[in-house]
Nucleic acid binder design. Structure first.
Lengths: 161, 161
DNA sequence: GTCGTAATGTTGCATCCTGCAACTATTTAC
DNA sequence: GTAAATAGTTGCAGGATGCAACATTACGAC
């Protein structure tokens, strides 16, 4: 394959990674990147068991558990006991947690918009098309139907207390 | 501005952030992401004063200092005393440090190549063009002339010991 | 030249992130 | 009904991070 193409993607990659990082840095006052990643998973996939959450984040269950502790302390997430399987713990977003995710995404949009605003409309279209193609090849879910599930901000089913 | 364009970029952004993360996870055995970021800055900008390094990474000087401690312990970086300004400390890469950066970049190239390989050549060209335009608008240095300076792996000038 | 101020790093302290190993509570398989 | 697998939590250890306090060095005003 031609190296030039990869070079172009690699360059843009650095840009976007930087944008994402910045959108968080200035973001939620005291929400860390790790915590934000967890919020995003919960927002996009809905309430998750601890194990699945850990797997989605690619961290050890103990890490996911303690991260959940902190999010709960900040009222960004909740812990529920699974009723089918009483071993399991289900973590879900609170309204506050959802808001943090929404705001961060909004900030990122602004940063990207600032970059695109420098270009004529025709080039913006070309970029949209190319980026869509790329994301599709990578098997990513397109933004306009993201998050995949509305992710109801409630426990999976009636939980006693 | 049209939301669709931003959506496309945002989607591709998630893809690339994931790729970058993965290229490190499997990467240097015990080099963390933070350490890797520092190595990249040193590789791309050459030896840096502690203050500038901290600014480039957007962390506090104390963090940069302690991160440098760890990199030095692993023989990936060196500490020098500035001779013009004896307050300053200059950090530079060792050959080992440079190698870590090169290997991570190579891994990332492979991941991106895997994605692009699914597309016909024409689309690859379109992607290259669009990504270049985007990166240029963001003011990023293109990959084919990166790192900007050869970043000589030596102290800025004759340092006594 | 001397004194006050600014710049550069480092250290102490607190908090978060992380993984591994050990342990408890449940569930499932035989 | 007991053994094995699964789900979480806790103890322990090390890296990442920022803020405040401190020592050194440089620079500017006089």
């Amino acid at each position: 394959m031609e190296g030039t193409v990869i070079d172009a993607v690699l360059t843009a990659s650095r840009t976007l990674v930087a944008v994402s990082t910045r959108s968080l840095g200035a973001a939620a006052e005291h929400t860390t990147i790790a915590q934000y990643r967890m919020l995003v998973v919960l927002a996009s996939r809905g309430p998750q068991r601890m194990v699945d959450l850990a797997a989605a984040l690619d961290v050890a269950p103990s890490t996911a558990g303690r991260m959940t502790d902190r999010l709960v302390r900040k009222k960004l997430a909740r812990r529920h006991r699974g009723r089918n399987d009483r071993r399991s713990v289900v973590v879900s977003l609170t309204a506050d947690g959802r808001q943090v995710v929404d705001e961060a995404t909004a900030r990122r949009r602004v940063l990207i918009e600032d970059i695109l605003a420098k270009l004529p409309s025709a080039q913006q279209q070309a970029i949209a098309s190319a980026f869509e193609t790329f994301a599709a090849a990578a098997g990513e879910v397109p933004e306009h139907l993201w998050p995949p599930t509305p992710a109801a901000d409630v426990p999976p089913a009636g939980v006693p207390a």
